[in-house]
Design a protein around this nucleic acid. Structure first.
Length: 118
DNA sequence: CATTTGACATCTT
DNA sequence: TAAGATGCCAAAT
């Protein structure tokens, strides 16, 4: 667990949503935020995962950005390698461009090919 | 208590 | 396609 008492209820919601993602599947920060009941708070998801203790059982590696890329790479070089390895271990294949085909592995797919109405 | 910062997403130029 | 700007929230300083 992610030291539930150390984190806010909001974070706990996020962690719970992340745990809903089955192995071999990925989800975007936005999806997790929506699952956690915090639509639009994708940023909080990323921050929550960053604050996640190493001993937690939360499958943080299954959370990627909307481009299908690993956000860890963006923050620090080499950081995404571990995440990529974990995902590949679960059967997630990466494209040559280094991205994950969301259309295939994305969990809780919303508007697969359409954009959100405004 | 106020300011800064951060594993993002989405729109606009 | 790329780059810049904005919104949102919590934790750290």
């Amino acid at each position: 667990m992610a030291d539930s008492r150390t984190f806010s209820a909001t974070y706990r919601r996020i962690y719970a949503a992340v745990r809903l993602v089955p192995a071999g599947r990925v989800a975007t920060y936005g999806d997790i935020a929506a699952l956690a009941g915090l639509p639009g708070q994708a940023r909080l998801v990323g921050y929550a995962l960053h604050a996640l203790p190493p001993h937690s059982t939360v499958p943080w590696h299954r959370i990627i950005n909307a481009r299908g890329g690993l956000s860890l790479e963006r923050s620090g070089p080499g950081g995404g390698l571990a995440q990529r390895f974990l995902l590949e271990s679960e059967g997630v294949a990466f494209e040559a461009s280094g991205r994950v085909p969301l259309a295939r592995y994305r969990y809780a797919p919303r508007r697969s090919h359409a954009r959100a109405p405004r």
